[in-house]
């Protein structure tokens, strides 16, 4: 990987170039470490008409739905602010008729992306849901939500779901290099499949690190550079959700301000006016936060280190040629080998 690829850019540029109205958009993160800044930027740019895929639609889905960006939602789990009494943006949009929903189980949803990731057109899922309304109630996908096929080997009925290959995935990770190798660790969830199933991938990260760092820990890389379109460095990019090894969930912003705001349409609008539309980018969002609550409020969220033991990637040799210049298994030097090739008539001028 020689040249600088020009993938490093701002959230604004990445969203402008790679997220388009009417796209199938997938939020790659699952419950934690959500790509908050990319979600906010999409909302600020007023993109619309999405079919949104979200494994666990917490505040990120609430913001996109309340921002009027989403027509259709494929999901397994949505947020409900404030328990029985509180509502949610999703509930309000369903009742207003501006949002259509398709409910899957966690596995079925993820399986659709796994199928897409591997290039299959459908995949077998767990047949137990056939007795439930998850199977019986069809939303906008109709017959294509699930189909039953006969196993050609056992003759049993198998439940299947169609592959999903969203147009664009937005995802936040701990670190990446400038080429786009994206590293993520902790609860792996369905993060890799969501990204790899997609046609375009925007990666935001807490920090851009040297390529050497990636090469010394390749098992942490969940998306290879060649699949990534944009790399956006955004410290605190998942705030108020947590990023393992960087910071905790911010209860003050999340359970405190956001959850109570999201219970009503007006509350959520006021919250978004202040924290999404009112801050042009993540740096100004963090400035606003510090201005309001002090830097100590952020500092106390920072993770205390707990490092993984290094794994030894070493091998015995780094070359076929030993210290005397002899090839280790044939016992000859390179000039000796070349001479032998000539003597045996194997070398052509």
């Amino acid at each position: 990987m020689g040249e600088v690829t020009g993938k490093v850019m701002s959230a604004g540029e990445a969203v402008e170039r790679f997220v388009h109205d009417g796209n199938e958009l997938v939020i790659g993160n699952y419950t934690v470490g959500s790509c908050a800044e990319l979600v906010y930027e999409i909302t600020r740019q007023g993109k619309k008409g999405f079919t949104l895929y979200s494994q666990s639609g917490i505040f990120d889905v609430e913001v996109l739905v309340a921002g009027g960006c989403v027509d259709r939602l494929v999901t397994t789990y949505v947020m409900r602010s404030g328990g029985k009494k509180g509502g949610s943006a999703v509930e309000r949009a369903l009742n207003a008729g501006t949002l259509k929903i398709e409910d899957y189980t966690n596995f079925d949803y993820n399986a659709r992306l796994v199928a897409g990731m591997h290039g299959f057109s459908f995949i077998q899922v767990l047949e137990g849901v056939m007795v439930t309304d998850l199977f019986r109630k069809r939303g906008f996908m109709g017959e294509n939500k699930f189909r039953v096929v006969k196993c050609p080997y056992t003759g049993k009925n198998l439940l299947t779901v169609p592959a999903a290959t969203p147009d664009v995935c937005i995802i936040h990770v701990q670190r990446a290099d400038k080429f786009g190798n994206a590293q993520y660790w902790g609860a792996m969830g369905s993060v890799a499949a969501a990204a790899l199933a997609s046609k375009r991938i925007i990666v935001s990260c807490e920090e851009i690190v040297d390529h050497d760092v990636i090469q010394s820990s390749p098992h942490l890389t969940i998306i290879p550079a060649y699949r990534v379109n944009a790399v956006v460095e955004v410290p605190w990019g998942a705030h108020p959700t947590e990023v393992l090894g960087y910071y905790n969930v911010d209860n003050l912003m999340y359970n405190g301000l956001f959850v109570s705001a999201a219970a009503t349409a007006d509350g959520l609008k006021a919250w978004m006016d202040e924290w999404v539309y009112g801050c042009p980018d993540r740096a100004s969002y963090i400035d606003h936060y510090i201005g309001k609550f002090g830097s100590a409020a952020l500092d106390e969220l920072r993770a205390k280190p707990f490092y993984s033991a290094p794994a030894n990637y070493g091998s015995a040799f780094t070359s076929h040629w030993d210290r005397e210049g002899k090839e280790r298994s044939m016992g000859v030097t390179l000039p000796e080998l070349e001479k032998l090739l000539q003597e045996r008539g194997k070398s052509y001028e």
Partner: peptide, 26 residues
């Protein structure tokens, strides 16, 4: 754990299945 009231026009939209249906199956 999905909805109270009508599915399309819910009185209360609850979280959904998440992992529940598959775990309870197997």
């Amino acid at each position: 754990t999905t909805v109270i009231g009508d599915y399309e026009k819910p009185d209360l939209r609850l979280p959904g299945s998440g992992g529940a249906a598959d775990f309870m199956s197997y």
